[in-house]
Simulated scan of single mutants.
Amino acid sequence: MRPPYRTPDWLLERIALGELPPEVLAAARARLLEEPDGAARLAALEADTAAILARLPPAEVARRVQSRVRVQRARGERPSRSFLPAFALVPALAVAALVVLVRPQVSAPVGPEVELEETRLKGLEARLTVHRQHAESAEELADGALAAPGDVVQLAYVAAGRAHGVILSVDGRGTVTLHAPESGTASVPLAPSGTHALPGAYALDDAPGFERFFLVTAETPFALDEVLAAARSFAAHPEARASRLPLPSRYMQTSFLLEKSSP
């Protein structure tokens, strides 16, 4: 006789983060609340998250970024990139960055929990999210949003089961910048589920026109040469705002565009 179904931790975290397709989320939450300790488990997770966020004041994030930019300018450097340690992530992203996500070990399709897992992977697409830091809050930006030089943004990705990837950006000056990895010659392993913030915030420079971020993924590790070469040739193209990177079909890609206002 099988033991009563109990929502696994990975699914509890997805419910708390709202990272399931709407109909699956509603069903999973209803089932969780029917379990004897379901409501208490959800409340405990939310309380832990609130305690974490209380230790991450967003004003400190802004202060540190602004300080670093001032130092760069004083040295005569171009303040195009400004990175912060992972513990300084803004509150709106702290849940995604600090909750540990565990993918379940499934041996056979023996119940509704497996159906939820399969639906979750099929219903989610790999994507990037971008939040803009303000003094006391973080604003989630829409694809195509207007940004300005000096804006501090936090990148995060949802791999949706993709195993390996790279995150880079192309700007209106034709510059290609690596974000994950920040350097090196190979792709990085991606967390297969959940939203994961990169370990540093990023200050937009004064490149004109736009900044476009790309998440390129594959099923196996890959060298960066081909992806970077495609990005560099693409960066100078008049259609760089909207076209896809010229990559073979073994790569999957998604992008996020920020339109840049004048300084």
Rank of each mutant, 00 (worst) to 15 (best):
G200Y: 11
L257G: 02
Q66A: 15
R64F: 08
A27E: 14
P192R: 08
L124A: 08
L11Y: 03
P149Q: 05
R120D: 03
A207T: 07
L198G: 05
T217A: 13
V65N: 05
L228H: 08
A138C: 09
H134Y: 03
A50K: 13
L124Y: 02
L224E: 05
A218K: 02
R162I: 02
R162D: 09
E182F: 09
V176Q: 02
F210P: 01
L116T: 12
E46D: 12
V227L: 06
P112D: 14
A229T: 15
T175I: 10
H196L: 15
P58K: 01
A126G: 09
S233T: 10
D9W: 10
F213T: 01
A39L: 12
V95N: 04
F83I: 15
R75N: 13
L168D: 04
A39Q: 13
L204E: 00
R241D: 02
E140L: 10
M252E: 12
R68H: 09
T175A: 11
G165H: 03
R241A: 09
L198R: 06
V24I: 08
L228C: 03
V170W: 01
G18Y: 05
D225L: 08
F210I: 05
Q253G: 05
F213A: 03
Y5M: 13
A201P: 03
A94F: 02
Y251P: 01
G38H: 06
T129A: 06
R63A: 14
T195K: 01
